[in-house]
């Protein structure tokens, strides 16, 4: 396995590839692409278990800020487990436990004393299946801000609109904010869930196979969005779909049987993998 300290440098060299013909209506003001990349999440020697089953073996990995990092690998390789340790969603599984260190800036994410509530505000998550609450569209997006902030009604409306615009779903829902979110299509629901996650102002967005339950058109819309959002957020995406990883990520990490096999710039991993297993997986020999 490559030395983790070089990984950050390697990631820093990643240039977001220009995506011609994929013009979104966003023209974001902050252009960070030329600045050197900073480190967002640092994983060192992480071992994780479900009961007696060891799901992760000695993972060391750097997640660069304002980039899309893809975690790929066959099912059961531990990529979702790793993602769910980033914001401690694994706390909901009684048998799950981990040793090692995961840091977000100065915060030790695995520490007992870390406030998971605050942590999850800083690290948002989007799940495999869109899971809007059985409430109105507005209330879905306002859910997080209402928990964490004291906002007046107009301020709340601003936040909701902002989040929905950021998630590129505003134009589709602006006329029916009061109608139930479950009436939206799958793709809209998923973008609504992204808006919901954005609305609390997180630093990192975790996405657990966000497109696996969507049709191709909705997938495209969500991928566009992911690519766009990385300007402001650090994004970690778990995916089954190698094309997706190739399309919308800057860095790719390949996992196999709970071990990190290879990590590097997405183009490198897909075109010139260093490990045989990675090549086999990427070329579709298994998985």
């Amino acid at each position: 396995m490559s030395d983790p300290t070089t990984l950050a440098n390697e990631a820093a060299a990643i240039e977001p590839r220009p995506r011609d013909g994929r013009q979104t209506h966003f023209t974001h003001s902050r252009e960070q692409t030329s600045e050197p990349t900073t480190l967002a999440i640092r994983v060192r020697d992480l071992n994780a278990w479900y009961g007696d089953f060891q799901a992760l073996h000695a993972i060391s990995l750097d997640i660069p800020a304002n980039r899309v990092s893809a975690l790929i690998g066959p099912s059961g390789c531990g990529k979702s487990t790793l993602l769910r340790w980033f914001n401690r969603m694994n706390d909901t599984i009684p048998s799950a436990h981990a040793r090692g260190s995961v840091n977000l800036g100065d915060t030790d994410l695995l520490s007992r004393t870390t406030d998971v509530v605050d942590l999850r505000r800083r690290i948002g998550i989007v799940f495999q299946r869109p899971n809007p609450f059985p409430k109105s569209i507005f209330d879905n997006v306002a859910f997080g801000p209402r928990l964490h902030m004291k906002l007046s009604r107009t301020e709340l409306q601003d936040v909701v609109e902002w989040a929905l615009r950021k998630a590129a779903v505003w134009d589709e829902v602006k006329d029916r904010l009061a109608s139930p979110a479950l009436g939206l299509s799958g793709g809209q629901q998923q973008r609504l869930c992204i808006a919901r996650a954005i609305a609390v102002g997180p630093e990192v967005l975790l996405m657990d196979e966000p497109c696996s339950a969507l049709d191709p058109a909705s997938t495209l819309a969500v991928e566009d969005l992911i690519f766009e959002l990385r300007r402001q957020y650090t994004i970690v995406i778990v995916t089954h779909n190698m094309q997706q990883a190739a399309r919308c990520s800057d860095q790719t990490a390949f996992f196999y049987e709970g071990r990190l096999i290879e990590v590097g710039a997405t183009t490198t991993v897909f075109t010139k993998p260093k490990q045989q297993q990675t090549e086999d997986y990427v070329s579709g020999k298994f998985g």
Partner: peptide, 24 residues
């Protein structure tokens, strides 16, 4: 999945219950 969604937004256990699980 609803509980996970609310937890992922930084809800405390009671907030999950009060705003999501109990109404449902």
């Amino acid at each position: 999945s609803l509980r996970d969604g609310a937890l992922g937004l930084g809800s405390t256990p009671w907030q999950v219950v009060w705003h999501v699980t109990l109404p449902s």
